[in-house]
Design a protein around this nucleic acid. Structure first.
Length: 896
RNA sequence: GGGCGCUUAGCUCAGCGGUAGAGCGCCUGUCUUACACACAGGAUGUCGGCGGUUCGAUCCCGUCAGCGCCCA
């Protein structure tokens, strides 16, 4: 016996264990089945399951389970990412709480700590994914820093270097002063900051009393100014171009240069140029061959060393500047502004709101800094990736995201891949004492190269930096399959079928996998990229800890079960839309899980179970044929929706069929049969009920794996835990489905009309009345007779018979097809209300007729619209007019 | 500033050339022997504004407005 309610907490862990132990999630490289591959976007090893994971993983699991049921050899590749900065941050914080820090313990010891931490806490997210029901092939789980993947990283680094696609360069980088590392453009986010625009007066050399005013948002960098730029066409400053200014405080002579970078509309039209601390200034500096002294160090503190030689007491204040050495950038700003004010060199200070680049992890303003870093030639690698999307070798769903991809890829900058961190893949480059670099697969190989090159053994030092986390993530689609070895897995599961991820990760990850995949595998890494939205709260706000609107998927699973959460996600995941998730929505969908459970209890009470001998094609009763046919349509709808990545439509189609058709109508129609005598009809209805319920369980399994799997074995459809491996349903043959549909449609219409009339007349369900048919055809009378039990029950009727003689007094009347149905309700009926009801129905029919008449009266419509559309309108008009006539007759009948 | 998306019932959203829909909420009734996490019924819309194309526009095109996101 099934319990009164479904208890997810008891069922979910048991079934998941069963699946996992039985190897139900495993792919089979040796099988001839067509592969279906999804690479998990590896969550951070530090992470725990948040609602965004629940969205993306539910989608991936739905696809995987569905394709697996379709007979594909499904591989959903699990794994986690070492997440360089994020993980190092977590462990550093942990150490700090114990009064330790990484620098004093040294690299080896620190890394030891990280690995220990990973061993202890790193498995959290994989345990949580199991709670969601994710059918990942766990024995194949990989980690971006495990041995195989590290080998792949080195192979790629060395190869790209050999090919000239990876190189060292001294350029400005985004420097994060908190983490003390370079970060890529993508790890920088602009934030609006309310600051000031300082107007500083720079004296013109040799012209006492004359100044050129520059406007700047960063006065502290003036120590590193090497020029002032004005627009070549700017009349105001034309005579100053070529002349020199005296840089205040420093005393250095700096030129006024003409450069189109300077915008005459902005500020004063004259900009100070600090090439070592601003990306635009860097370009100006290059164009004009200017020196590039750095005046801020790795901690973003003032560093005087590189300008020390330029300090001059003439026009400057060397003591003041020297005293700034080691002062934090923001403190230095205050002091410099104050000093300039004393010197009356500040013309004005305007409030100014502007975009300031911040490190996305540290949250502090990044500092552009001139350093030596490793770069990947993204421009070259991007070209084939762009082409692959242009030619459709990889297609985005929804399509519009291709624009985002193209926009980024066509304007891609060199990718800075070195990070001044300890946790990550250490760069395989070794330096000789003279600085010569040897990129190699191992220290021994580097030593070999050095010997060959230099003719002697030299002491080599390995580059201390590690690679950007996304460098190894970019290789994920093939490194997880054993590359660079030629494994059977690599041959079978590359390229992947679909990549599922959020739009925020297109640049970070999708673009880079495309580049690396194509370059090293000669083939795109996936055929489709399904981009889903973000999970937001009910009001559409982003979830954040500070807003306090974060939803915890595990808590939701505890409260409502994984099936309810997953189905909710499916139902809300439309194309190109964010998912607005509220607790209430999950609660509502738990109602659907319960509904299925209760339908199952009904079947159980009526002795209905899997009838493996039932043959749909041999069904003779209209009810069986009708429900089998409706099931066929549900299967077609669900399949089409999943093929189109329309998870909302899949959920809606399954829901509609299960609740609206199977439960609301089929079960109700079946009740009289099931309560009646045993016989062939009853046996057939039981068979169909069991058959279609099995279809429902299969259709819903991808979205609601647990409740469906539980019911599957409880009803004997298969062994416990076997639904996951059961074939996805197909259409079954049904004889004369058309006729069955027409018949049942009529019964449904009759019951609906009678119910409506009764409800509007406020007739209590306890009052039952006969239904008198007027003007009914033979077919209708036959149908009424055949369905008398269901009509009695669902329309609260005592009997259905043709009207004999005149209409009794006090009838409610409804029109169903060609017949008028009368409900003798003399005792309860309110004639005025009944008249109003009929008049309203007539009004509706008349409005309809009027609209169609106008259309058909339009000669252009009749002449130009397709024949079938015109014909259809004629039919509709006839039907509406016939209904009006019947309603008129009904009104006339109660008039007197 | 450039680009993308959105605007349909009170709310969340489908529909995207030929009869305006769903779920929730709301209102009314019901313990009808699977289910009150239920059943039955009902009300609610100038489909953002203005033009255009078309026999016909919620749907296509243009434009304006508001909202959101991404990139500068």
């Amino acid at each position: 016996m099934l319990d009164k309610t479904f208890d997810p907490a008891a069922v979910e862990p048991r079934l998941y264990d069963l699946w996992e132990k039985a190897g139900a999630f495993a792919c089979h490289p040796a099988s001839p089945a067509q592969p279906f591959t999804i690479m998990i976007p590896p969550p951070n090893v530090t992470g725990s399951l948040h609602i965004g994971h629940a969205l993306t993983m539910s989608i991936q699991d739905m696809l995987t389970r569905w394709r697996r049921m379709q007979g594909r050899d499904a591989l959903w590749q699990p794994g986690t990412d070492h997440a360089g900065i994020a993980t190092q941050m977590v462990v550093e914080r942990l150490l700090a709480s114990q009064g330790q820090d990484r620098r004093s313990m040294g690299r080896e010891a620190f890394l030891q700590h990280v690995w220990e931490w990973k061993a202890q806490s790193g498995g959290a997210i994989t345990r949580q994914l199991r709670r969601l029901g994710a059918s990942l092939d766990w024995p194949r789980e990989r980690f971006t820093m495990d041995e195989g993947l590290s080998k792949a990283v080195i192979q790629v680094f060395v190869t790209l270097h050999e090919q000239g696609l990876l190189y060292r360069d001294r350029r400005l980088v985004n420097w994060d002063p908190v983490f003390q590392t370079a970060i890529s453009d993508l790890e920088v986010e602009s934030r609006e900051v309310k600051g000031s625009l300082w107007h500083l007066k720079y004296p013109v050399a040799g012209e006492p009393g004359r100044f050129l005013t520059v406007a700047t948002t960063r006065p502290e960098t003036m120590l590193g100014d090497v020029a002032v730029a004005v627009h070549p066409d700017d009349e105001r400053y034309r005579d100053l171009v070529g002349k020199h200014l005296i840089l205040p405080l420093v005393g250095r002579r700096i030129p006024v240069v003409a450069d189109a970078y300077s915008d005459p509309e902005k500020g004063t039209g004259a900009v100070k140029i600090t090439p070592a601390h601003d990306f635009n200034d860097f370009e100006v500096g290059r164009r004009h061959d200017l020196p590039m002294p750095s005046v801020l160090d790795a901690d973003a503190r003032v560093m005087v060393a590189e300008i020390a030689a330029a300090l001059s007491a003439v026009g400057g204040d060397p003591d003041f500047v020297r005293a700034l050495d080691g002062v934090d950038r923001f403190e230095a700003r205050k002091r410099i502004v104050a000093r300039l004010q004393e010197l009356e060199l500040v013309e004005k200070i305007e409030p100014h709101t502007h975009q300031v680049p911040h490190g996305d992890r540290s949250g502090v303003p990044i500092e552009p800094r001139l350093t030596m870093q490793w770069y990947v030639d993204a421009k070259t690698l991007a070209q084939p990736a762009i082409k692959a999307v242009e030619t459709g070798q990889t297609a985005f769903v929804p399509r519009q995201w291709e624009n985002t991809f193209f926009a980024w890829m066509r304007d891609i900058q060199p990718w800075c891949v070195s990070r001044q961190l300890w946790w990550g893949h250490q760069i395989p480059a070794w330096y000789a004492p003279d600085g010569e670099v040897f990129v190699a697969r191992s220290e021994a190989e580097a030593a070999e190269m050095a010997r060959a090159k230099l003719g002697r053994d030299v002491a080599l030092t390995r580059d201390p930096d590690v690679l950007d986390t996304w460098f190894s993530s970019a290789l994920w689609p093939f490194s997880t399959l054993g590359w660079p070895e030629k494994t059977p897995e690599l041959a079978k599961y590359y390229p992947g079928s679909v990549l599922v991820t959020g739009f925020d990760i297109i640049f970070f990850w999708v673009a880079r996998m495309m580049m690396m995949g194509i370059h090293f595998m000669g083939e795109v890494p996936f055929r489709h990229v399904y981009i889903h939205g973000l999970v937001r709260d009910e009001k559409g706000q982003k979830m954040s800890k500070s807003k306090g609107n974060v939803m915890d998927p595990l808590e939701l699973i505890d409260a409502y079960g994984a099936d309810a959460l997953r189905f909710t996600i499916a139902a809300l995941t439309g194309p190109g839309r964010d998912v607005k998730l509220g607790r209430k929505r999950v609660e509502d969908h738990r109602g659907f899980v319960t509904k299925i459970w209760n339908a199952a209890r009904f079947l159980e009470m009526n002795g209905i179970a899997a009838d493996l001998g039932f043959e749909p094609a041999k069904a003779t009763s209209p009810l069986a044929r009708w429900v089998l046919d409706a099931g066929n349509r549900a299967v077609a709808e669900c399949t089409a929706a999943l093929e189109a990545y329309r998870f909302d439509e899949y959920a809606a189609a399954a829901y509609r069929f299960t609740w609206g058709t199977y439960c609301d109508w089929f079960i109700e129609f079946a009740k009289p049969v099931l309560n009646g005598p045993d016989g062939p009809e009853k046996a057939e209805v039981k068979g169909a009920a069991g058959h279609v319920f099995g279809t429902i369980l299969r259709l819903l399994h991808p979205a609601m794996p647990f409740v469906t799997e539980e019911l599957w074995h409880r009803f004997g459809y298969g062994a416990e835990g076997s639904l996951i491996r059961t074939a996805w349903p197909d259409a079954v043959a049904v004889q004369d489905a058309e006729a069955a549909r027409a018949e049942l449609d009529w019964v449904v219409a009759l019951i609906g009309e009678v119910r409506g009339a009764r409800a509007e007349m406020n007739v209590p369900p306890s009052v039952t009345v006969p239904l008198l048919l007027q003007g009914a055809s033979g077919t209708t009378l036959a149908r009424a007779a055949a369905w008398i039990d269901a009509i009695r029950r669902l329309a609260r009727a005592t009997e259905v018979k043709p009207l004999d003689g005149a209409a009794p007094k006090g009838v409610a009347q409804v029109v169903v097809g060609e017949a008028t149905v009368m409900l003798p309700l003399a005792d309860v009926i309110d004639l005025a209300a009944e008249r109003a009801r009929l008049a309203k129905a007539r009004g509706t029919a008349e409005g309809e007729a009027k609209k169609i008449r106008a259309k058909l009266g339009n000669a252009d419509f009749v002449a130009r619209a397709p024949e079938e559309v015109v014909e259809e309108n004629r039919e509709r008009l006839a039907a509406a007019e016939a209904e009006m006539a019947r309603l008129d007759a009904a009104l006339a009948r109660i008039a007197g």
